[in-house]
Simulated scan of single mutants.
Amino acid sequence: MKKNNPIQLHFCTSLGVSSLPKLLALYWSLLRHSANPFVFWVLCDGDEVYQLLFKLNLEHVRLVPLTEFEKTDVELYSVKRYRDVFEYNCTLRPCWMLYLLSCNSEIQFLTYMDTDLYFFSDPQYLYDQLDNCSVLLSEHRFSKLATRLGMTPKISGVFNAGWLAVKNDKIGHEALLWWRKRCLEWCRRFYEDGKFGEQKYLESMPELFQGAVALNRLGGNVAPWNVSDYLVSADEINRVYVDNEPLIFFHFHALQMEGEFSFKVVREVGKNVVQLTNPSYVLSGRQKQLIYKPYIAEMRRAIRLVRDIRFNKEEATIEEEAESPWNFKKMIIRTKAQLTRLRSIILYMTL
Rank of each mutant, 00 (worst) to 15 (best):
residue 306 V to F: 04
residue 222 V to T: 07
residue 298 E to T: 00
residue 278 N to P: 01
residue 276 L to F: 14
residue 200 K to T: 06
residue 267 R to N: 14
residue 284 S to G: 09
residue 299 M to K: 08
residue 251 H to D: 10
residue 233 S to D: 10
residue 217 R to L: 04
residue 321 E to I: 10
residue 304 R to M: 12
residue 273 V to R: 15
residue 225 W to Y: 13
residue 199 Q to L: 07
residue 254 A to Y: 01
residue 306 V to Y: 03
residue 201 Y to D: 02
residue 240 V to W: 15
residue 305 L to A: 11
residue 279 P to Y: 06
residue 232 V to G: 01
residue 206 P to K: 02
residue 274 V to G: 04
residue 203 E to K: 06
residue 282 V to A: 04
residue 306 V to M: 01
residue 299 M to A: 07
residue 240 V to K: 13
residue 288 K to A: 06
residue 282 V to T: 12
residue 261 F to N: 11
residue 263 F to R: 10
residue 254 A to N: 06
residue 259 G to I: 13
residue 234 A to P: 01
residue 284 S to T: 12
residue 256 Q to D: 11
residue 303 I to V: 11
residue 232 V to I: 12
residue 280 S to P: 00
residue 298 E to M: 04
residue 231 L to R: 07
residue 290 L to K: 02
residue 202 L to E: 00
residue 259 G to L: 08
residue 276 L to P: 09
residue 234 A to R: 07
residue 252 F to Q: 08
residue 203 E to A: 02
residue 216 N to R: 14
residue 292 Y to N: 14
residue 202 L to R: 05
residue 257 M to V: 07
residue 319 E to L: 08
residue 248 I to L: 01
residue 246 P to V: 09
residue 254 A to S: 13
residue 255 L to T: 08
residue 218 L to P: 00
residue 233 S to E: 13
residue 196 F to P: 14
residue 240 V to G: 06
residue 230 Y to S: 00
residue 218 L to M: 12
residue 260 E to T: 10
residue 240 V to Q: 12
residue 277 T to K: 11
residue 248 I to P: 01
residue 217 R to N: 07
residue 280 S to H: 05
residue 297 A to Y: 10
residue 246 P to F: 12
residue 295 Y to C: 07
residue 251 H to A: 07
residue 235 D to P: 01
residue 229 D to P: 10
residue 226 N to F: 06
residue 204 S to L: 07
residue 316 A to G: 03
residue 286 R to V: 15
residue 271 K to E: 15
residue 250 F to G: 00
residue 244 N to M: 09
residue 306 V to R: 04
residue 313 K to W: 14
residue 288 K to G: 05
residue 208 L to A: 06
residue 314 E to S: 09
residue 229 D to C: 04
residue 321 E to W: 09
residue 242 V to H: 13
residue 267 R to P: 07
residue 279 P to R: 07
residue 292 Y to M: 15
residue 207 E to G: 05
residue 303 I to F: 03
residue 229 D to W: 10
residue 280 S to K: 12
residue 237 I to R: 11
residue 300 R to D: 15
residue 306 V to S: 08
residue 277 T to W: 09
residue 222 V to G: 02
residue 317 T to R: 01
residue 246 P to L: 15
residue 215 L to V: 06
residue 318 I to H: 04
residue 227 V to S: 09
residue 268 E to H: 09
residue 262 S to R: 06
residue 205 M to H: 02
